[in-house]
C-alpha cells in the first residue's frame, strides 16, 4: 500500500452514478408503491437491487489515487480518464445545451426557426467561421428536412415561418 499521492475525485463520474442511482431507487420505490404483488415486482425488484449493488461496486472507482511522479505504469492500468481541455468541454456543453433546448421547445417555437437557429449555432461552435456558407447551408438543410420528412410522415410539423 502506497500512502503517497492525493486522492482525485472524478466529479463527473460521481454525478453520473448519482443520477443513475437516484433514477433506479426512485423507480423501485414507485413500483413498490404501485403494488407489492409478484405480478408487478417479479423482475423490477430483483433487477433494481442488483443494479444498486453493482453501482456500489463501481462507486469507489470515482476516487482514484493519483500516483506520485514516476509511477505512470500503475495509472495506465485504471480505466482511462477523460482528458479534454476546458475549451473543448465548453464546446460540447454549448452544443449539448442547445440540443436539449431544441428538443424541448421545437414544437412551441416552430421547427423551421428552431432547427435553423440550432444549425447556425452548432456549425459555428463546431468550427465554421464562414458565415455565408453557414447560413446558406443551414437554410437549405432546414427546408430540405421539413419538406422531405413532411412529405412522408402522416402528421404536420408545427412551423413558424415556412
Amino acid at each position: 500500500m502506497q500512502k503517497t499521492g492525493k486522492i482525485k475525485v472524478q466529479w463527473g463520474h460521481l454525478a453520473l452514478l448519482a443520477v443513475l442511482g437516484t433514477a433506479i431507487l426512485a423507480y423501485l420505490l414507485d413500483a413498490r408503491a404501485t403494488s407489492l404483488r409478484t405480478n408487478n415486482l417479479i423482475l423490477v425488484q430483483p433487477m433494481s437491487i442488483l443494479a444498486l449493488i453493482l453501482l456500489l461496486m463501481v462507486l469507489p472507482q470515482c476516487f482514484q489515487r493519483v500516483p506520485p511522479a514516476g509511477a505512470e505504469e500503475d495509472h495506465a492500468a485504471l480505466p482511462a480518464t477523460p482528458k479534454e481541455t476546458p475549451i473543448e468541454l465548453a464546446k460540447i456543453g454549448v452544443v449539448t445545451g442547445a440540443f436539449i433546448l431544441l428538443a424541448f421547445f421545437m414544437e412551441q417555437i416552430g421547427f423551421d426557426i428552431a432547427v435553423f437557429s440550432f444549425l447556425v449555432l452548432g456549425i459555428f461552435v463546431c468550427g465554421e467561421r464562414n458565415w455565408i456558407a453557414n447560413i446558406a447551408f443551414s437554410a437549405v438543410f432546414t427546408a430540405l428536412l421539413i419538406y422531405g420528412y413532411g412529405a412522408i410522415i402522416p402528421f404536420p410539423f408545427p412551423l413558424a415561418v415556412l
Partner: peptide
C-alpha cells in the same frame, strides 16, 4: 464534422 454533427443531430 463542423457541418456533419449539427446536421445529423437534427
Amino acid at each position: 464534422m463542423r457541418y456533419l454533427i449539427p446536421s445529423v443531430l437534427v
